[in-house]
Design a protein around this nucleic acid. Structure first.
Length: 270
DNA sequence: CGCGACTCCTGCCGGC
DNA sequence: TGCCGGCAGGAGTCGC
């Protein structure tokens, strides 16, 4: 799925087409998403004007005067703009039809994504307990170091925990640890303050560069403008098992941590 | 509370 | 060529 850079790319892609638009009609073809789409979502959204499109963690927020739609893309979701009468293909689960004659369309083959309505997104149960945004000033090495004291979990799983920091998914966790030179298996509580400084900086750098490249397209991710992400070409370790490390040329290793694949260089990351 | 395993779902790819 | 197992960008929930 979309990690933070892909969600941000989607946000930027759709914003020009939907900000200031009134939602004329909501068409939901499949309510069985990660959570069933509530029966009142149509009533809440129809007639509302989208004032802005924001992002918190991996959630897209379509803000209106009375509240917000919360869209999550799960593992396989994407949003894009279509002309209103475009026939829906398989797995295109809902449309928000706009004043302009266009529609925001949501596609998600695996249905791990979701659509919610809330009066106050920051107090919504999916959002209220999340950790800081990685690109904010609140997130730094000192913060990571403090939160990690006493924690035995591997640092890779630690930085993928949304209660610690949001937006770092499987790709960017591996990439950030490589850039910081930290072994992903290392216990979070046994990493120095200084190395957490490097890790926080690496996370910021990797995410910022990925956003600039329009995200990473492994299989089927396309931003709101229909373009794939180009960060794939800049991946140092992710999905590069047995290929030479970009630094030392030794083969990139792949292991499993917490049911997720991790890629790293056994030589460069200690 | 922290942590690990499991779960939801479809598509695709590699191996036999 | 066709079938089958395994794996995939997330993350809530449950049990210990």
């Amino acid at each position: 799925m979309p990690e933070l850079p892909e969600v941000e790319t989607s946000r930027r892609g759709i914003a020009p087409y939907i900000e200031g638009q009134r939602i004329d009609r909501v068409v939901i073809r499949e309510r069985r998403l990660r959570w069933p789409v509530a029966r009142d979502v149509e009533d809440r959204l129809e007639g509302a004007t989208i004032d802005s499109v924001a992002r918190r963690a991996k959630y897209l927020l379509l803000n209106t005067a009375d509240g917000s739609a919360i869209i999550h893309l799960g593992m396989s979701g994407s949003v894009f703009i279509v002309e209103r009468d475009t026939p829906a293909a398989l797995h295109e689960h809902f449309d928000l039809e706009l004043d302009s004659g266009q529609a925001l369309r949501f596609r998600d083959p695996r249905r791990f994504g979701s659509l919610h309505w809330t009066n106050d997104p920051m107090q919504h149960w999916l959002i209220r307990d999340l950790g800081p945004e990685p690109l904010s000033e609140a997130f730094d090495g000192e913060y990571l170091w403090r939160k990690s004291r006493g924690r035995k979990v591997a640092v890779k799983q630690f930085i993928m925990n949304a209660a610690i920091v949001v937006g770092v998914g499987n790709i960017y966790a591996s990439e950030s640890l490589f850039l910081a030179g930290i072994n992903p298996k290392r216990a979070a509580g046994r990493i120095s303050r200084q190395r957490y400084g490097q890790l926080a900086a690496a996370i910021k750098q990797v995410l910022a560069k990925a956003i600039k490249a329009g995200g990473t397209t492994l299989r089927d991710f396309y931003g709101g403008d229909g373009e794939p992400g180009y960060f794939r070409h800049e991946l140092a370790v992710y999905d590069r098992e047995d290929e030479p490390c970009v630094t030392c040329r030794s083969p990139v290793a792949a292991i499993v941590q917490g049911q997720r694949r991790t890629y790293y260089c056994k030589n460069c990351q200690t």
